[in-house]
């Protein structure tokens, strides 16, 4: 396990993440935005890997980069549009609201990070490192088993909801 946070690698991943996040917002073509989302999710997975959260990194790649983006691309495919140009135009009227919300979120996160004691310093990374998956299995199937089963119910609800909505649209 890699316990030292390599600053060069960190800044590289953070820069890739921020640039691809900007590209998601500023690309005029929705499909390009969706593909930049893959880059963004992969660099987030890299950051997770850097703090030895190997399982989380694998989940980030499998579920977010692999599945959520596919779902978004499919959603683009099933909506009606004549051309893919200019499908992700900035909404001028929401800029003020969005910037106020983003500012609030920034200060909230800054407050949490400044006051938090669980920041990934080198010390607690060593405490975390080792086999994260088996520790997770113990917690998930032991202490948090109710939450685990509720997660299954949540997934079931999502599946049934999608079937109901899609069948309704199909029969029209």
């Amino acid at each position: 396990m890699n316990n030292d946070l390599n600053p060069a690698l960190f800044y590289f991943l953070a820069a890739v993440m921020l640039l691809s996040a900007l590209a998601i917002v500023y690309c005029r073509n929705l499909v390009y935005s969706a593909l930049f989302m893959v880059v963004c999710f992969l660099s987030i997975a890299g950051l997770y890997a850097m703090i030895s959260a190997d399982f989380l990194a694998a989940v980030q790649i499998m579920v977010y980069a692999g599945t959520i983006v596919i779902l978004i691309v499919l959603c683009i495919m099933i909506t009606r549009r004549t051309t893919m140009e200019r499908t992700n135009m900035p909404e001028k009227k929401y800029i003020l609201r969005a910037s106020v919300l983003a500012g609030l979120l920034f200060f909230l996160l800054a407050y949490i990070f400044v006051n938090s004691e669980v920041l990934p310093t080198t010390n607690n990374i060593i405490a975390l490192s080792g086999d994260t998956v088996s520790g997770l299995a113990d917690l998930l199937l032991g202490h948090y088993m109710l939450a685990f089963e509720i997660a299954a119910v949540l997934l079931l609800a999502a599946m049934i909801g999608a079937v109901v909505l899609a069948k309704g649209a199909d029969e029209k």
Binding site: F55, V63, T67, L74, I78, V133, F148, A151, L155, D170
Partner: peptide, 26 residues
């Protein structure tokens, strides 16, 4: 526009992908 059936396959794929994630630590 593609058929909505694609979306159903996709959502079932997402659900079972997440299930695999839960199966893996177990």
């Amino acid at each position: 526009r593609y058929r909505i059936s694609y979306f159903l396959y996709a959502i079932i794929f997402v659900v079972f992908d997440v299930e695999t994630i839960f199966l893996f630590p177990w």
